[in-house]
Design a protein around this nucleic acid. Structure first.
Lengths: 210, 210
DNA sequence: ACCTTTATCTAGACAGCGACAAGATTGGGG
DNA sequence: CCCCAATCTTGTCGCTGTCTAGATAAAGGT
């Protein structure tokens, strides 16, 4: 019953092994270096095996994208739990968590933001994205003091928060800032900069009634 | 001397024709649909012809990226010239110009932000990116009232401006907002939202001395 | 006018890719 | 015990990017 290779056939947990191999390829070599055949090679199976579990290339990548989103949400929940009960502190923690995850896993984030490589109609993918959106709206609602509409573009504060988190991480990953900083130090340096930007932002947040 | 096809050989302006074909493929079909062979087909030459002018796939895409950056910078300059002399108005125009270009040409912007598909060491590419950065710093310096350092991460205001422009456009192109709006209306709708966000932001900008 | 040089483009080959189909192997339910 | 369904292999197809050698045409010197 162990998920070891009992024989050439019936690997035991090939599906997860393929996803894991794919994650390793993408995180170390980059998204364009991934091929189904290379994943099969690393899992020690033939080049046609992955198709049986995932249908096609998009299917495999979609499964990895789902797992990445879940890890992102989990990290965000952990940061927020650590932040205590103050709504603004929880919002900051949420933003910093997303920025941190995006910078620590730039290739996975790239995968997650590429509709041409993932199946946007996949129910698991839709579910985790929905869950992530609801988390944000709930957090923003606590700060606002009343229930906000689920449409993110409905109120400028939600939009601004999204824009800053998304934009800051993208700026780092696109090499427009902190490009010369070693990878290991980048998350810490980014956090300092992000806190500075967020400090500036709170002026805009604390005076919502003009 | 006309750049028409004088004969099968010596197209006359094949290099530019290939770049143009590549632009059309990418803007209409997407970045992953582009192949050197398809560009050659559209230009009416053999599959090996592009390599002579660009070396390899990256060379061709780099040339297109350079042209895209130049168009972006040109549009930004036009918006700013139209905005008059007020520094804050010029900064707003600069930001709106970048957002507009990014949303109108999402595939080209994707190309420009993918180091794995373009040669970052290309001198033309470096030149136009440098020119773009200098424009931003100069514009921010006018607003600040004194000369800012060229490092974008040096002062929070510059960073925040970058973050918001970059992030807003990315949010739209990633389908996280305005996803249900038809392509034709999206730039106009985005502009309204962007002006709203920028209005919120000016509170943070107008009180730089805490 | 001729001939050579050089830039340009063609044509063919190669390995690697994703997808598909057909077959081999294995484990579990009747 | 046996058959069935799930799992994995093997071979094939058209496509890709890149490399090579060769064909063609324009330009320039004499």
């Amino acid at each position: 019953m162990k998920p070891q290779q009992k024989s050439a056939y019936h690997h035991g947990d090939l599906k997860e092994a393929l996803v894991e191999a794919t994650r390793e390829i993408i995180e170390s070599e980059g998204l364009d270096q991934f091929t189904m055949r290379e994943s099969a090679r690393r899992a020690g199976v033939s080049h046609g095996a992955p198709a049986h579990h995932f249908g096609d290339k998009t299917g495999l990548l979609t499964e990895l994208a789902v797992q990445s989103f879940e890890a992102r949400v989990a990290q965000s929940e952990a940061y927020m739990a650590e932040a205590g009960d103050d709504p603004m502190a929880r919002l900051r923690a949420c933003g910093l968590a997303h920025i941190d995850y995006t910078i620590r896993h730039p290739r996975l984030h790239e995968l997650c933001s590429r509709p041409d490589m993932t199946n946007r109609d996949d129910p698991h993918l839709q579910a985790v994205i929905t869950r992530m959106s609801e988390m944000l709206i709930a957090t923003m609602s606590e700060v606002a003091g009343h229930e906000l509409k689920p449409e993110k573009e409905a109120n400028p504060e939600t939009l601004l928060a999204l824009v800053v988190v998304h934009g800051f991480a993208a700026l780092v990953n696109d090499g427009m800032i902190l490009a010369d900083v070693p990878d290991a130090e980048r998350p810490a340096r980014a956090r300092v900069l992000a806190e500075g930007v967020m400090g500036l932002l709170e002026k805009a947040f604390r005076a919502p009634r003009e």
